[in-house]
Structure formats: structure tokens, C-alpha cells
Computed example of a mutant assay.
Amino acid sequence: MSLFVTMTGMIRVDEVERVATPQRILEKITPQREPAEVRTVEREFAPIVEVALPPMPPVSKIASKVGGLPVPVLKTDGWLVSRDVINFRPPAPQAIGERVAQAVRQPTASYPPAMARIGQGGTCEVHFSLSTRGLPYDISATCSHPGFEKEAAKAVGKAQFLPEIRQGVPVESHNYVYPMEFRLQ
């Protein structure tokens, strides 16, 4: 606080003198150019030139040099065929009808080390639901030995599926069962 008072005391407004500066008026801030003269040139259109395309030869027979795909053999003896313009367009998008959920990336489980040590094998049924993006959720595993349940649920959780589609729209689907078998070889 004392520093503030000291600094305020050091600044004195009566010591500052204002010097009057002459005011100048700027008439033009940017230079103005005179409008350029507009020139027009009269030109004639280019004449239309008729170009005759050579006639398209007819297909006379199918001959194949290599077994499998047929190769057309063309005759060029004066047969006139009109040439039409062919427009290539990408196919129009079509809605997907109905689809049952399908696995894109299969569940892959690793063998639990504790079960491998005792030489135990078993089977599991993993129950789950799928979101509209094909991601599994609500996962529960029922196994012949409880040591496999955690690994089976983890494997299905990492899998990817194409979602079920009804009337062209992806929907959530429930009550899926994925069977798994753990076997030592």
C-alpha cells in the first residue's frame, strides 16, 4: 500500500505541459483513380463444324482365345450403327432390407492359465445384447466351470458385429447366445 501512495505522489499532473499541435484535415485518405475506359470487342462466333464419326463395326461372332471369357470378333464391312452417348452413373443407394446380426470379428478367448495348470476343459454359453452400432453389452457367461466365465465374457466384449436391421434401420437386439469351448490339445 505504501508503494502505491509513494508512486502516486511522484506523479504530478501539473508538471506535464500540453503542447498545442496544429490540426490538419485529410481530404483524401486513399488516392482515387479515374474510372478506366471500358473497351468492348465485337467478335463473331466460331462456325459449327459437322464431324462425321466413323461407323461402328458389327459383332459377327464370339471367339475365344483363352478358355473362360468370350472375346468378340468384329467385322468392318460397312455396317452403319448410330452411336449413342452412354452416361455412367454410380448405382443409386438402396436400403438394406432385413438382416440378422452377424459377427465381423469373431470372439477369441485365451485359455485361463489356472485352468490350463489343472488340465481343465469346459464349455460356455455367453449371453449378450447388441447396440445399434453392433457393440455387445449386458454380457454374462454360463460355463461348465466358473474359471472360464471371466475370459469368455471378456472375449465376447471385444468382438464386433453387424447390427440387426429391421425395415432398413439398425436396431438394438437382445438374447444372443455365443457358444464357446475351451479344450487343451
Rank of each mutant, 00 (worst) to 15 (best):
M1V: 09
S2E: 12
S2I: 03
L3A: 12
T6R: 05
T6A: 05
T6L: 06
M7G: 06
I11E: 10
R12Q: 13
R12L: 07
V13D: 13
V19M: 12
A20M: 09
A20R: 13
Q23R: 11
Q23S: 10
R24S: 14
R24P: 01
I25H: 08
I25F: 07
L26M: 11
I29M: 07
P31R: 10
E34L: 13
V38H: 04
R39A: 09
V41K: 06
E44C: 00
F45E: 14
F45W: 05
A46D: 14
I48W: 02
V49G: 01
V49M: 07
V49L: 14
E50N: 07
A52S: 01
A52Q: 05
P57N: 12
P57T: 06
S60T: 15
K61W: 07
A63C: 03
K65L: 08
G67Q: 05
G67K: 07
G67Y: 02
G68H: 03
L69M: 05
V73D: 13
K75R: 12
T76N: 10
T76Y: 10
D77C: 04
L80V: 15
S82H: 08
R83F: 04
D84E: 10
V85L: 06
V85T: 02
V85G: 00
I86P: 00
I86A: 12
F88K: 00
R89Y: 03
P91C: 00
A95F: 06
R99D: 03
V100G: 06
Q102R: 10
Q102S: 14
A103K: 09
A103N: 01
V104D: 04
V104R: 14
V104W: 01
T108Q: 15
A109H: 05
S110H: 13
Y111N: 00
Y111T: 00
A114V: 04
M115E: 15
M115I: 00
M115K: 06
A116G: 01
A116T: 02
R117E: 14
T123P: 00
C124I: 02
V126R: 04
V126M: 05
H127S: 09
F128C: 05
F128I: 03
S129T: 15
S131Y: 02
D138K: 08
I139C: 12
I139S: 12
I139E: 12
S140I: 01
S140V: 08
S144A: 11
E149K: 10
E151A: 15
A152R: 09
A152Y: 09
A152P: 07
A152V: 11
A153E: 13
K154T: 11
K154E: 12
V156D: 03
V156R: 02
V156M: 03
K158I: 04
L162Q: 10
L162V: 07
P163V: 13
P163Q: 09
I165G: 04
R166I: 13
Q167N: 15
V169A: 04
V169P: 00
P170N: 05
V171G: 02
H174R: 13
H174Y: 15
H174G: 02
V177A: 11
Y178V: 03
M180P: 04
M180R: 03
R183L: 09
L184I: 15
Q185Y: 06
